[in-house]
Design a protein around this nucleic acid. Structure first.
Lengths: 178, 178
DNA sequence: GTTGAAGCTGACCGAGAGGTCAGTAACCTT
DNA sequence: AAGGTTACTGACCTCTCGGTCAGCTTCAAC
């Protein structure tokens, strides 16, 4: 069989690294461990990404861009429709979502990221940055990510409906639903 | 001035360790760093607790007991009253709450804890372990902890009302509210 | 066939981690 | 005053980590 292209290899490394960072934490994850899971040596990780920090940044870059694009693309949509798309996005990328909400301090001290989680929150807040609204959005955002990750064994198709119903309540969109 | 009692010193170490574990992650936190913050050496941490893992267990023991006691004590109460007390508990111990929800894998591989987070969830679930109910409770539990921690600069008195309102919606207790 | 770049490895290095241990100072107890 | 326990330190050990480097193989270009 043909050996995989460079971008395929890099993508696999990024994905594996991200998963391990989420499961064990960034500091507790070893370059050698990441390498072993994808069938390469620790040196190969450093050859491709230069440093462990750079690997984290690279692994976060795509999810962050996808999320950022989603937020701008759905900025004008009706709230419920937007939420629906957001739930699907979280379900499709549970690991990434969890990392973004649960590793706040780590991401802040990293600095070199294009978009910060705070920007994303502000983008969802829209024109109402009241404390009540902040709490609603934060509860939804973090709750969705944590819950989808905690119920990792439940398939997305099964999890989608209850997740959407609860999130709609949290955001006070129930009247729209009924 | 009289030098602090043994239990005072131990409690201060546990509290500082817990805060650093939450802020930086367990693996990224150093015994020397914990020691420096409380004015002792790394060796003193090991003298008092024996190992870094044992310090984590010791630091988690009291919060877990408090939470466990709360759950059994309020098991029979009306849902809204129970939620109110729970919000107050989370607000009073934001660091502990965040550690419990965000470091799931770490706690599991620890093993030596008296009560596991899963037990606590089951205790709140009561007699309805349906997926919809699980999602509701998980969203509330994790969302509250993450949100209270994310808005660390907002005082508890100010955060209490919006937090309670949103959590009540998430748990579908709004009719009770109105 | 030669050349040179790309991909990757394994040996190595320095730093920093948790943990051990002998020793010391302060404090009871008798 | 003496003895013993408690609290704590600093030197040291060992291990593991991220990172560097020289060198090996593969393969495309010419």
């Amino acid at each position: 069989m043909p050996r995989p292209s460079r971008e395929q290899v890099l993508a696999e490394i990024r994905g594996t690294a991200l998963r391990l960072f989420v499961d064990q934490g960034f500091a507790a994850t070893t370059l050698a461990q990441i390498g072993a899971e994808v069938g390469y040596s620790k040196s190969a990780m450093l050859y491709h990404f230069g440093s462990k920090d750079a690997l984290l940044v690279a692994a976060l870059d795509e999810p962050l861009r996808r999320l950022s694009e989603f937020l701008t693309a759905t900025a004008g949509r009706p709230a419920l429709e937007r939420l629906e798309a957001f739930v699907d996005l979280v379900l499709a990328h549970r690991h990434e979502a969890l990392l973004l909400v649960s590793q706040g301090p780590l991401l802040k001290q990293l600095g070199t990221l294009g978009t910060s989680p705070d920007d994303l929150l502000a983008s969802y807040l829209g024109d109402d940055p009241s404390l009540a609204r902040q709490v609603s959005v934060l509860m939804t955002f973090t709750g969705l990510a944590e819950t989808a990750a905690a119920l990792a064994e439940v398939p997305a198709a099964e999890l989608r409906t209850p997740l959407l119903a609860v999130a709609a309540r949290t955001l006070d969109l129930v009247t729209t639903l009924r």
